[in-house]
């Protein structure tokens, strides 16, 4: 089967799963509405915190109000995007625990793709709309003019950031096969991601080092924002690209090793 046909087949699978997810969300309207409202409140309160901070200061770690807001919105864009499309990973533990993963393996579809995309969070897709609009507005309000090259770097590093996030989700699935009691691994990632809400310069140098090289949250969130602000040098750009690709393929290799280790013990 050609690559294009494989892609087309998987897109059809994703579309069907997404329609099922929409049906599920529509059948529980109170939960859906309150979850969306809860997400908006969380988003709004942090925005309020940033605006409130700037009532007392002109800069935070050298950044102006709209620059800090750009970091915050970029964090939300990447985080919400991952929540929207890779939500299925949160169900993976139960699949392994109950032996349901055996059924996934027997389907004529990539098991990793199915496990990650089996639940599309429609609420998060809806939530992406105001985030993107606010990013456009914030970009317009930035103190320095934004060039086309800056926008290109922003989009490029959004893609590399997503590649690393995808790798982390694959890593989480791999760890689940090895250690079933690993529910908190993905939640640890979620919490760690929150350090990306603010510019990395608020952290001390050793902390920045850890969040750049070992837990690459700065590469995921701060690099796109810095790219848009024109603050990235050539070597850092090359490093981030190489890191993202290497990290992703390493996680993929670990998944393949884990899959071989899967013993179907629970089924």
């Amino acid at each position: 089967m050609s690559d294009f046909r494989v892609l087309k087949k998987h897109f059809r699978v994703w579309r069907r799963l997404s329609f099922l997810a929409i049906g599920s969300y529509l059948s529980s309207r109170i939960d859906s509405a309150t979850f969306l409202l809860g997400k908006l409140i969380r988003f709004g309160f942090f925005l309020l915190l940033i605006v409130s901070i700037f009532r007392f200061t002109k800069t935070m770690a050298g950044y102006t109000q709209y620059e800090v807001i750009l970091f915050y919105l970029t964090f939300n864009l990447i985080d919400v995007f991952a929540q929207a499309f890779f939500r299925g990973i949160y169900l993976f533990k139960n699949d392994v625990l109950r032996g349901n993963f055996d059924y996934v393996l027997s389907k004529p579809v990539n098991a990793l793709f199915y496990s990650m995309s089996r639940l599309t969070d429609i609420l998060d897709i809806v939530f992406l709309v105001p985030i993107v609009l606010l990013i456009a507005y914030t970009t317009w309000r930035l103190p320095a003019p934004v060039t086309a090259a800056n926008v290109f770097l922003y989009l490029l590093f959004l893609c590399t950031g997503m590649l690393i996030v995808l790798g982390i989700h694959i890593l989480s699935a791999s760890v689940t096969i090895w250690v079933i009691e690993s529910e908190n691994f993905i939640w640890l990632y979620r919490e760690t991601m929150t350090v990306g809400r603010f510019p990395p310069e608020i952290f001390s140098a050793p902390v920045r080092f850890v969040f750049t090289f070992f837990l690459p949250i700065i590469l995921i969130v701060a690099f796109p924002a810095k790219g848009l602000l024109g603050l990235l040098s050539g070597p850092w750009i090359l490093f981030a690209l190489a890191y993202a690709v290497a990290f992703f393929f390493l996680c993929l290799a670990l998944w393949r090793v884990s899959l071989k280790k899967y013993s179907s013990a629970s089924s």
Binding site: F56, N184, L188, R197
Partner: peptide, 26 residues
């Protein structure tokens, strides 16, 4: 469930680090 508990507390340290850094910087 000690492993999950330990990871859960690690999450709490990350939040602590973020909040400490914000207010310390300001």
């Amino acid at each position: 469930y000690r492993f999950n508990f330990a990871l859960g507390r690690l999450r709490s340290i990350v939040v602590l680090l973020l909040l400490y850094s914000i207010w310390h910087t300001l």
